[in-house]
Amino acid sequence: MIKLIECPRDAMQGLPDFVDTAIKAAYINQLLEVGFDTVDFGSFVSPKAIPQMRDTAEVLSLLDLHKSQSKLLAIIANVRGAEDAFHFPEIDYLGFPLSLSETFQQRNTNASISKALETVETVQNLCQTKGKELVVYLSMGFGNPYGDPYSPELVAEFVQKLDDLEVKIISLSDTVGVADNELIKNLFEVQIQAFPHIEFGAHLHSRRESIAEKVIAGLAGGCKRFDGALKGFGGCPMANDDLVGNMATEVMIETLEGEGHSLNLNKAELGESMKLANYVFQS
């Protein structure tokens, strides 16, 4: 079964103007009506680094979770953020960005890769005792613009380290939109065959015209978990001055359904979410 992860947090986090807490909550509440597997709704990170997400706890208090089957995911960048997130039983998943690029790991979490791996181990151990699931995003998973080493073999080395820690969900992330279709297909195919007990996801960034072919490449490689954001808004503010947007969820839905996958989404609520997205991101 295909899992769609809707990422309003990723869409909002780089906006220059602060989105009012009530508006954030209203938008996320609307997304919770659609039927996405998971909603990546906020982050527990330094407000100096990502000021847009400084109200995540307040947003959470305004969410109506009683009718929704969607799970909640929050991003953390260190142990302190994880400990903050553990206070909220409503949160199902903690997401941690682990980079294959030393340059980007420093830019994104102000830590080395070796330090970040220590954090992953600590947070994973805590998640296992707190009843939450850790999702590790392998950022720069398809290459990077910084000249740091990259190869599919390096991806496999990182996956092996995470497997040793019993991490069960790994999202391969094309943080700056450099992946070509053949690499997407091959990378998922090799990793899924080597680690069949791990759930691999695709967190890709793309120009709108390339979204469908990237989804199809991921499917061909065996990927069944896809991250997106309505209208393709967002992009990592720590990655690059020339941001490449998120995968537009509506294009992914059209593509996945065109490939014969039933997504069990409420299309009326999806339409309302699209209208609200226009207000949130273009007002």
Rank of each mutant, 00 (worst) to 15 (best):
K3C: 10
Q13V: 04
P16S: 06
V19G: 00
I23G: 03
L31F: 01
G35H: 06
D37G: 08
G42E: 05
F44G: 06
F44L: 08
P47H: 00
P51W: 11
D55H: 11
V59Q: 04
L73V: 09
I75M: 15
V79P: 07
R80E: 15
G81K: 09
A82M: 10
F88K: 01
T103C: 09
N108T: 01
L117A: 05
T122F: 08
Q124E: 14
T129N: 14
V135E: 03
L138Y: 10
S139L: 05
G141S: 13
G141H: 08
F142M: 09
P145N: 12
P145Y: 13
D148K: 05
Y150N: 12
S151H: 13
S151Y: 03
E157V: 07
F158G: 00
D164T: 11
K168V: 00
S171C: 15
L172D: 04
T175V: 09
V176N: 14
A179P: 03
L183W: 03
L183R: 14
H203T: 06
R208H: 13
L219S: 06
A229W: 07
A239L: 05
T249G: 10
I253M: 11
I253R: 11
H261A: 06
L265Q: 12
E269R: 15
E272H: 14
Y279A: 09
S283H: 02
